[in-house]
Design a protein around this nucleic acid. Structure first.
Lengths: 194, 194
DNA sequence: CCTCAAGTTAAATGTGGCCTCAACTTAGCT
DNA sequence: AGCTAAGTTGAGGCCACATTTAACTTGAGG
């Protein structure tokens, strides 16, 4: 790749990073190009599709989430680890409207939870009847609250999350009315998200 | 109003009712007119704005919600009443994507909860630290789950709601990290919802 | 310095939705 | 039957955004 092309690519990523963060994934591509000081054609040269750009902007997030998961797995208290993981992911959501959109559609954010859930359940703190698929409820719920409140009441999502977590403790468990979604249902539902 | 105009109004309401229910509030007005067998101009004659149409389609819902609230207030067990109200409203959301959109934006759905919450709190079943504003979390959360799952896993929202309710019981209470939103913050956040 | 593949540009094209308006039609009154 | 206010129509203007394309520019190897 030529030097000027690489440079434009960086400028585009920077612009997209900022605009996605402030306004979500639906920002017009023309505005991203303009903000980057580059023509719309160049944007299309560097990133064939919107998804390509989104992927490039957020590729680091997978590693971030993995790091949060690792931390969570070595926490002294498995429940604290579980809480720390969800809090960490939700903080990413709250800090970036683009990632907030993405997390609700993407699925990759919850897959690393499998072992964290297992550990917390075995410790007896996490209720035994929740599954990985139930974590989508947490993500979708907090995502919705972030979207609604990020301007009016930033930080309100922490209260939503805390209430949700209280419902996930073994000590809070009451019988659930329907079986959990299968993983493929959960994945399909995430893809369907807009 | 002339007879033919009244007739067209009905046809438009019917079409809008069905399309909103199936696809949410963002259905193109042209499609509603076409489905009603009427021109777009006539739609604008009968309903000056999209909100006007939405309001007309869903005007009965306020009474429905009020009825659910009344039922809830006379339930033997205040907690059961509380659960019944939220379940009832969420069933409305799940049955109609348009109302699902509306409930998350509208606020009117939760105002009648004030007395229900009071009663459930006084009975000792509902945790003492939750407020009316916290109910927006339930509405937003279930709305998001309905949107994500109505095709893939209809009914999954009942599980989301049940987990949420378990977190609202007094017996589940742990300290909350941030104070509740004020009512005006909650209202503003609802208006901000897309 | 020349060359040309690589890259950039902005205008053009396409799509989809909103909303208006001037020309036409009709209900309903007398 | 005739009049007219009320109502209907759909084409047309507008806008926002996506995507393509043909003409122009430039980095970098020889």
């Amino acid at each position: 790749m030529r030097k000027d092309a690489a440079h434009n690519r960086e400028r585009l990523l920077e612009a997209a990073r900022r605009l996605f963060a402030d306004r979500g994934l639906d920002v017009p591509l023309e505005e991203i190009a303009r903000t980057a000081g580059v023509s719309i054609g160049t944007l299309y040269n560097r990133f064939a599709t919107r998804e390509g750009l989104v992927e490039a902007v957020f590729e680091d997030r997978a590693a971030t989430v993995a790091a949060i998961a690792e931390q969570a797995l070595v926490a002294d208290d498995p429940w604290e680890g579980f809480v720390a993981f969800l809090t960490g992911v939700c903080e990413l959501q709250a800090a970036d409207l683009g990632y907030n959109d993405l997390a609700a559609r993407d699925g990759k954010g919850i897959e690393p939870m499998l072992r964290i859930i297992d550990r917390a359940r075995k410790s007896g703190a996490l209720r035994g009847d929740v599954t990985l698929a139930d974590m989508t409820f947490v993500i979708w719920g907090v995502a919705a609250t972030v979207r609604a409140t990020y301007r009016t009441a930033p930080g309100a999502w922490r209260r939503h999350l805390a209430l949700t977590l209280d419902g996930l403790r073994a000590t809070a468990a009451h019988e659930l009315p329907v079986p959990p979604m299968s993983i493929s249902q959960a994945r399909a539902a995430m893809n369907e998200c807009r």
